[in-house]
């Protein structure tokens, strides 16, 4: 895997992780997109150095590995679908709560309250 590709993938996943830890849903969705891009770059890089298009034309030139490209394509389609679903869910959450933030688990807070002497 080329260094540029590896560094880019690392930077994308790092930025995605940072965004994922925010409390705003839009940032989380963008963070997930970045992580998925990073993963796709790792897959692409796993096919070895770039070469001619994977078409058998009789020239005998070395061709690039077509499998990672097929895998990336599948992964992109799946990520696209799930991200669209996530956006719809985020919009639904905005309609219901009129805020874009992630809320705490109510039941968790209630039970944590027992331990803290009922402070919540």
């Amino acid at each position: 895997m080329s260094v540029v590709l590896a560094v880019t993938a690392g930077a994308l996943v790092a930025a995605g992780t940072y965004l994922l830890l925010q409390r705003l849903l839009t940032r989380i969705v963008i963070g997930l997109g970045l992580i998925a891009h990073g993963a796709n770059l790792v897959l692409l890089g796993s096919g070895g150095p770039p070469a001619a298009p994977p078409v058998i034309d009789g020239s005998g030139a070395p061709i690039s590995d077509p499998l990672p490209q097929a895998l990336v394509l599948t992964a992109i389609v799946i990520t696209f679908g799930v991200t669209a679903f996530l956006l719809a869910l985020a919009y639904r959450s905005y309609l219901l709560t009129s805020s874009d933030g992630v809320e705490d688990d109510v039941e968790d807070r209630r039970i944590a309250g027992f331990a803290g002497g009922g402070s919540t």
Binding site: V13, G16, L20, L32, I35, A36, G38, A39, N40, V42, L43, L44, G45, S46, P68, L71, A75, I78, T79, V82, T83, L86
Partner: peptide, 13 residues
């Protein structure tokens, strides 16, 4: 989704 991303990275590696 995070788990799926990590799974893809694992497959790539």
């Amino acid at each position: 989704l995070v788990a799926s991303g990590l799974f893809l990275i694992g497959i790539g590696l």
